[in-house]
Simulated scan of single mutants.
Amino acid sequence: MVRRVTRLLTAVTAAVACSLALTGATAAQAAPKPKPLPAGVDITGDRLGEPLRLRAEADAAQVNLVIDQVRWLGATGQLRGPSAADLGPKYTVVVLAGDKAKNTYDLFPLAKGGPRIYRPAKQPDQSELRAGWFFGRLNMSETLRSVGVPLAPQFDTLSGGIGGGERVLPEEALNPAGDLDTALGDLQRLLLLNVGVVLIITAGLAGIALLVRRRTR
């Protein structure tokens, strides 16, 4: 009986070890590697007498804030954007690779219906992308203002009485990140794998307890 219990314990331990190893490998694969920060960004636009030059060496936090506004853009966007009368002031962001311009984006933080981004097809690095319009992040105006763009303070929501506020942006603009579904899928698979490990341990312990109980009767 002792030998059987020992063999069962060894089998359960091996199964748990394999499951934990698989869980660790899945977690490592699910964790995305952070992309390196560009060398800097140049911002030009309304009420900016000269370009606002931000460099990663001295302004890493500010550069990261600006890049966060455009880093999530997918391969395709909307073919048509708002009319020119509804766009408001435009700010062009040029992303640098070393001392050369790599990408450019037009940001409209005060556009009617919510912030918008336009990505031209022709880029400074000669790459060809599909031109498109995208909904911008809710905090675009505040982000640009925090890095030095002359914009008045804005609020993301309008007060709507008891029970909360009314969204300024349409519902489809609240989740612009193209890879959010992928991240949630990875998290779900990781949680299911952890549940499987717990079930294996529980089943093993229950089997051992049942065997010991029968042998001691």
Rank of each mutant, 00 (worst) to 15 (best):
L138E: 10
Y105E: 12
G81P: 01
P120F: 03
R145K: 11
S141V: 11
P120W: 10
G98R: 05
D86C: 03
S141A: 15
F134V: 00
A61I: 10
N139C: 04
L87R: 14
G132H: 01
E128H: 14
Q78I: 00
P82S: 03
I117W: 03
Q126P: 01
L96E: 09
G77L: 04
N139A: 14
V94N: 07
T143N: 07
E142M: 12
K90W: 07
E142V: 11
D86V: 04
G113F: 02
D106W: 05
N103F: 06
V70A: 10
L144R: 07
A61W: 02
V70N: 14
M140C: 00
Q126W: 14
N64P: 00
L107P: 09
L65F: 08
D125I: 07
E57Q: 14
A60N: 14
Q62V: 07
L79S: 09
G132M: 02
Q126G: 04
G77Y: 05
G136P: 08
N139L: 10
S83W: 01
P89V: 08
R145M: 13
L96N: 06
P89S: 14
T104C: 05
A61E: 13
A75E: 13
L87K: 08
Y91H: 12
F108Q: 05
P115I: 03
G114Q: 01
K122W: 00
R137V: 03
A131W: 12
N64A: 15
R71P: 05
L138R: 10
G98P: 08
E57H: 07
L96G: 06
Q123T: 02
S146V: 11
D68G: 14
P89C: 08
V66N: 14
E142T: 15
T76S: 11
A75N: 08
L65K: 15
S146D: 07
V70E: 13
Q126I: 05
E57N: 12
L87W: 09
A84M: 03
S83H: 03
T76L: 09
